[in-house]
Amino acid sequence: MEIKVVRKVLAVNEQMAAQNRQLFAEKGVFTLNLMSSPGSGKTMLLEKTLGRLLPRVPTGVIVGDICTTNDAVRLARSGAPVVQINTDAFGGDCHLAAHVVREAAEDLDLAAIDLLIIENVGNLVCPAEFDIGEDLRGVVLSVTEGEDKPLKYPLMFRVCNFALLNKIDLLPHLQFDKERAIANIRAINPGLPIFEISAQTEEGFAPWLAWLEERVREKQQTNRQPEETGNGR
């Protein structure tokens, strides 16, 4: 006897992600899911980013790692509210799932922040598959990695809305072919905005932060509009 099922295996995660998205919209929080391989410089990038955004853009951080609270300790020095998720409590997962982000978000005062940055577990495979209710997905590729990473992990580069090419201060010392790396990203996702930056020197930060702030403001404006027409303010 055959039983028709036709059910998405990740349906539970997708429902939870939709609930997260609704919660973030209600609280007017723009959410960025930042992904990369381990060691691409995500945490330093966030330290420097928080240093430049705060206090102008109130920002909270959820940071995912399999083990340790080292990243949260580093990021909390910026003064931003930080929640660490250790996925070993959830079975050593290699990615953040929507329900885990939800639990972490409940430990943040969402009304007090405009931007929530979620530093995903360092991994170019699994996080690409799991919607967590974010507005924007970004991937960090550092110039100490191979130029062919986008071709090896096409799903990640396909699902992201922008890419950061990090550690460009090291280019003079490396054989890294930047143009080839960019061509490889474009081969997977032709229109993807790519920002060349160095978290170490903060070179290239101005354009990408301006772009990010514009996304945050866009969401706030779409959120406020119905309220303004509703109560006549």
Binding site: M1, E2, I3, K4, V5, V6, R7, K8, V9
Partner: peptide, 11 residues
């Protein structure tokens, strides 16, 4: 896609 489409049960 990542979909369970159907099951076949034993008699």
């Amino acid at each position: 896609e990542l979909i369970v489409t159907s099951l076949e049960l034993a008699d």
